[in-house]
Each structure stands twice: as structure tokens, then as C-alpha cells.
């Protein structure tokens, strides 16, 4: 009887554990966009493809595969031809732009942190954008944000997963909306004589 009581207590205490390990596996919709006639190579480094965010010591969020999936779709909406490469050696001579995305940080805010009834996730990206000759055009800081509608009766891992998926979708939206608004990209485009009509919402 005592053993059963002890087991129930352990199970109950395990339920109160505040650690969470989340892996994002969801896919993302294709983007609806008119790409520009640009050939781009997206350099996906191993550290990006396998990235696991640790917003605090008790939480890990594995976003590596899903963010590659998202960028695959988003960059295809920005450029006519996109090559995903894993090293600079694979970049072809036709490439106009070489973009290397990286994650600076993943931040998490839970109801106990923010005193709101929501979970929030921030993913801070950096895009290193180079011309085909290797000259740096710009380093673009791209923050993305997602939150749950509310956390009432929500399982912590499910809530973090939902907020992260919304943040990843937001990253895709931010990229589509703002990429051609980056002043350095705008300057580069005008020098390349590439049509700048689209993507100007």
C-alpha cells in the first residue's frame, strides 16, 4: 500500500516538473508571391539545420528542421532560382546573392514570467547577405514573434510548440514583407537593374 502511495506521489510530482523539451515537426504552407529574377544560394550550415534553442536551463526547443523547411518555402517566394547549399564550395557561378541564415537567440516567456495568460516565443535571426563576389551587402537582424491565444488548461510543451510555430510563421511573413525593404538590398537591386515593383506592400 505504501509503495502504491509512493508511486502516486512520484507521478504527481513528475507532473509538476517545469522542464520542457519541444521538437517542432510541423510543415508550413507555400508562400504566395511573385519572385524576382534573382539567383540566390542559401547556405544552410549544420549548426542552423540542427539548431536547438535553450531559452532557459529547463527548456529546449528543437527548431532546426522546421526552420529549414520554412526558409525553403519563403526564399522560393523571393527569388526565381534558389539553391540550398551546405558549403560555399557548392555555390554556382550564376548566383547573384549568397545568404547565410543563423539563429542568434530563442527567448521564451511563460505565464509565470509575464503575468499574462499566454506563452510567448521570440526567435532572433541574422541573415548574412553577400554578393556573388563575396562582398558583404548587409547583416540583417530579423526578429520573429509568436504567442498562444491563452494558456488556460494548456499543457506547457504544447503551448511552447504552438507559440514557436506561430513565431516561425511570423519569420516567413517578416522575410516576405521586409526583405526588399532593407536599404542595402534596395541599393544592390537598383545597381543590378532588377524590377522593384513587387513585394512593396
Amino acid at each position: 500500500m505504501k509503495k502504491i502511495g509512493g508511486l502516486i506521489l512520484i507521478v504527481l510530482l513528475a507532473g509538476c516538473s517545469s522542464s520542457a523539451s519541444v521538437k517542432i515537426t510541423s510543415s508550413f504552407p507555400s508562400v504566395l508571391s511573385e519572385p524576382k529574377p534573382i539567383d540566390a544560394s542559401i547556405l544552410i550550415e549544420d549548426s542552423f539545420a540542427t539548431y536547438v534553442g535553450t531559452p532557459n536551463k529547463n527548456t529546449t526547443i528543437d527548431i532546426g528542421a522546421s526552420q529549414v523547411n520554412l526558409l525553403n518555402s519563403a526564399f522560393s517566394g523571393l527569388f526565381d532560382n534558389v539553391d540550398f547549399v551546405t558549403s560555399l564550395d557548392q555555390v554556382t557561378a550564376e548566383t547573384d546573392l549568397i545568404i547565410t541564415p543563423s539563429v542568434i537567440e530563442v527567448q521564451l516567456s511563460t505565464p509565470s514570467d509575464n503575468y499574462l495568460n499566454v506563452f510567448e516565443v521570440w526567435i532572433k535571426y541574422n541573415l548574412d547577405i553577400q554578393a556573388k563576389d563575396g562582398a558583404l551587402i548587409t547583416n540583417w537582424f530579423m526578429p520573429a514573434y509568436g504567442k498562444t491565444p491563452d494558456s488556460f488548461m494548456a499543457d506547457k510543451e504544447k503551448a511552447i510548440e504552438l507559440a514557436t510555430i506561430i513565431a516561425l510563421r511570423d519569420a516567413g511573413a517578416k522575410l516576405m514583407l521586409d526583405f526588399y525593404r532593407i536599404p542595402a538590398i534596395n541599393d544592390w537591386l537598383s545597381r543590378q537593374n532588377i524590377n522593384q515593383e513587387s513585394q512593396s506592400l
Partner: peptide, 25 residues
């Protein structure tokens, strides 16, 4: 229609909707 009706990009007023609809796709 992704990503044009995400919280960041959804048109808040008719002028923005008109510009969005101008995109043929």
C-alpha cells in the same frame, strides 16, 4: 494565402487590402 493574412501582415484597412489585391497571384 500565406503569408498575407498573418498577424503581422493582415490588412487592417481597405487601402492596404486594395494594394494586396493588386498582386495578381
Amino acid at each position: 494565402i500565406y503569408p498575407w493574412f498573418e498577424p503581422r501582415t493582415a490588412p487592417k484597412g481597405l487601402p492596404r487590402l486594395k494594394r494586396l489585391i493588386q498582386q495578381n497571384n
